[in-house]
Design a protein around this nucleic acid. Structure first.
Lengths: 223, 223
DNA sequence: ATCTGCAAATTGGCTTGACCAAATAGCGCG
DNA sequence: CGCGCTATTTGGTCAAGCCAATTTGCAGAT
């Protein structure tokens, strides 16, 4: 299986790995750009792009004329949750919160909102059929449900958690996640959620949402 | 004043500005790299570095062979959460989310965490007895429960929602809220939550937390 | 021996130019 | 009118070079 992601992403991961492996501890200085590029077998511009990605997510610090330094490897809280666990952490948070929200939503679900949800899934199906990534529809589906609670804070939280999937830290995994198969599964789960809402069954909706997000997290990690 | 930041950062800001200004709306395609670079007066590699930064923070999407596209123009929160927001909305959000969280927490509650919670409530009682506002203890109580899920994202959310109560908008109401009577009631409710956790009863804990936060919101508004 | 200061070496910052690969547009044929 | 191939457009990557900030090291002074 060849990695089809862009070179700078692959390179950023490899450098992250060098750091995680302990080859370069916190505070250590990485080899010079020219040397590191040659060592990794990529050109200097490509390495630079990777370094910028790492600089943005706080993995390294670049000091002009001095060198490239590894930043805080230190983990704050009691349990050593590594960066690699963050996607599962994210999806767990979404599962907990959105499952709670949909209980509220099911109670006040209007026919009009249901129609909007149906339309969203229709577009989603069309996207998948045409091998387009239905990311916007996925986002919309979850936001519509949150919005139906009438609580803007809850909407913001759902929004931020969803968009978190595309944060620097998780960027490297994106390519694998978005396969046609996984989107088809996601669509089926969305339909199950919608069915529960149509039946005005809060507990069924809660279960469907929780199932969807845990499954989604599993798909994300397994690829 | 000359901008001393790296060129890719300045360039990324300029492109962000092009998007924010409306020159390129959501979904629009930016000029080709070669053209855009010339238009901004930078080299293509430098522009590419800027584009990678923008891609990472979700401002744009780069499609190989196709072009550079503007993503969700609807930039979420940041700080624009002042309008539709109200104290009751805040407390409702906390009720929904923290009730869901405590179900998770009850499942994995350790004796050590319970001891910490008891100690927190002891200090809280002492504070109230001495007419001090036990704000820190209140905050700690809720954060400890969130932390016990082991999910840092959930902790952050609870933290942000709690601190939201002290934002400029809500500051005016605070004085009334913090009476000895209301804190005594809050303490009693906290003890009820703790009792449910000690009994390892997730549903009772959920009910106690929900009851506490809605009551807390009511106290907040009625004064 | 130690300190100071300047110059060389090191290292990141940026540019130019070129070629490859994916996606798209356009055209010609059936 | 539609299908399929090709040319063009556009992002992806590499190579080599020069500039600017920083560090290093040595020579001269104290």
């Amino acid at each position: 299986m060849t990695d089809t992601r862009r070179l700078y992403q692959q390179t950023a991961d490899r450098v992250r790995n060098l750091i995680a492996t302990g080859d370069y501890q916190s505070g250590a200085r990485l080899p010079a750009e020219r040397e590191l590029a040659q060592q990794l077998g990529v050109s200097r511009p490509s390495l630079r792009e990777a370094l910028i990605a790492l600089e943005i997510d706080g993995t390294i610090e670049i000091r002009m004329g001095s060198g490239i330094y590894v930043l805080n490897t230190a983990k704050p809280s009691g349990n050593g949750r590594s960066l690699g666990e963050s996607p599962s952490e994210l999806m767990q948070a979404r599962a907990v919160i959105e499952s709670a929200i949909i209980v509220q939503a099911a109670a006040t679900m209007t026919e009009r909102t249901l129609a909007t949800l149906r339309a969203t899934l229709d577009v989603m199906a069309d996207d998948i059929a045409n091998t387009r990534k239905p990311l916007e529809q996925d986002r919309a589906f979850h936001l519509i449900i949150a919005t139906s609670t009438g609580n803007t804070l809850l909407v913001e939280i759902v929004e931020n958690l969803f968009d978190e999937r595309h944060s620097p830290m998780t960027a490297g995994i994106r390519g694998h996640f978005e396969t046609t198969d996984s989107w088809t599964s996601a669509l089926t789960e969305h339909h199950a959620i919608l069915a529960a809402l149509e039946a005005r069954d809060p507990l069924a909706a809660q279960a469907a949402m929780h199932s969807h997000l845990t499954a989604s997290g599993r798909r994300w990690l397994e690829n």
